[in-house]
C-alpha cells in the first residue's frame, strides 16, 4: 500500500536527516519504525504526510506518487497523521478538534457517524466534548489526537510517539486502541520509543539509525534480536 523508495529527506538549509531509505507497508499491517532520538523517524512521517518533500526518491501510495500531492490533499488520499506532541487546536473544543479531523469529508452524515464511533472508542472525550483541548490532561490530549486522526476515516493511520509523556497504565490502553483500530482494517504506521509494546502489536518493524534503516523484521523476531535488545530494550 505504501512504498518509500530510496528517499532522502532534509530540512531547509540543513543536512539530510534521512538518507536513501526504502521500506514498505502492506495493506492491513501494523508496521513500526523504531530508533533513538534524532534517528529521523518523525522526519519520515512528515515526508509521507506532505509537510516535507523528499529531496530524492519517491513515496508511493497504492502505486501512485504521494510526494507530489499538495500536503492538504494527502488526507483525501486516505492518509492521516497523529503528529508528535499532539499538535491539537488548543483553543478549540474537543468536538471542534474532532470535526476538524473530518474537514476533508464533505458528507455531514458520514462525519456524524464517524464522530459517534470515535466517541465510543474514547468515552473520556465524550464526557469532555465542550472542553477546550488545551485544558485536557496529557493522556486525554493524546486520545483526542488519535481520535482526530481517525475522523478522516483513513486507510493508513500514522502515529508519531502516541505514548510520549503518558503514564504506563494509559500507555497499554493506547496500544490496545491502536490494535483495535488495526483490526477494523486500518493500516498502521507507528513510530515509538516504547519499543517493547510497539513490537508487540506490530506485524513488522524497521530500525532506523542516524537516517538509515539498519534492521527490519517481524515484530517478535526483532524482540529477540541482539541489536534491539541491547540498544532499545536495555537488556
Amino acid at each position: 500500500m505504501l512504498e518509500i523508495k530510496n528517499a532522502s529527506i532534509g530540512y531547509k538549509g540543513g543536512v539530510l536527516a534521512v538518507q536513501g531509505i526504502s521500506f514498505t507497508v502492506k495493506k492491513g499491517e501494523v508496521v513500526s519504525l523504531i530508533g533513538s532520538n534524532g534517528a529521523g523517524k518523525s522526519t519520515v512521517l512528515r515526508a509521507i504526510s506532505g509537510l516535507l518533500r523528499p529531496r530524492t526518491g519517491e513515496i508511493l501510495l497504492n502505486g501512485e506518487p504521494l510526494h507530489t500531492v499538495p500536503p492538504y490533499d494527502i488526507v483525501r488520499r486516505g492518509v492521516a497523521m497523529v503528529p508528535e506532541g499532539r499538535q491539537l487546536f488548543g483553543r478549540l473544543s474537543v468536538i471542534d478538534n474532532l470535526l476538524m479531523g473530518a474537514y476533508a469529508i464533505d458528507s455531514k452524515q458520514r462525519t456524524q457517524e464517524t464522530l459517534e464511533t470515535v466517541l465510543a472508542l474514547f468515552p473520556r472525550l465524550a464526557e469532555r466534548k465542550g472542553q477546550r483541548a488545551e485544558t485536557l490532561s496529557g493522556g486525554e490530549q493524546q486520545q483526542l489526537a488519535i481520535g482526530r486522526g481517525l475522523m478522516s476515516q483513513p486507510s493508513l493511520l500514522m502515529l508519531d510517539e502516541p505514548s510520549l509523556g503518558i503514564m504506563p497504565k494509559l500507555v497499554s490502553e493506547i496500544f490496545q486502541t491502536i490494535h483495535e483500530v488495526s483490526k477494523k482494517g486500518v493500516t498502521v504506521l507507528l513510530v515509538e520509543q516504547n519499543v517493547f509494546e510497539a513490537l508487540h502489536i506490530s506485524d513488522r518493524a524497521y530500525v532506523l539509525q542516524t537516517g538509515r534503516i539498519v534492521l527490519e523484521g517481524r515484530g517478535e523476531e526483532l524482540l529477540k534480536s541482539d541489536l534491539v535488545r541491547q540498544a532499545y530494550l536495555g537488556m
Binding site: L51, Y72, A80, P83, F89, R91, D96
Partner: peptide, 24 residues
C-alpha cells in the same frame, strides 16, 4: 461554520490544519 473553524484552526496550528486537509 466549517470554513470559520478552519480559519481558527490555521491560526492555532498551521501544520495541523494542513494535515486535516485545509488549504492554508
Amino acid at each position: 461554520s466549517k470554513t470559520g473553524k478552519a480559519i481558527l484552526a490555521t491560526e492555532m496550528n498551521r501544520n495541523s490544519a494542513l494535515l486535516m486537509g485545509v488549504n492554508t
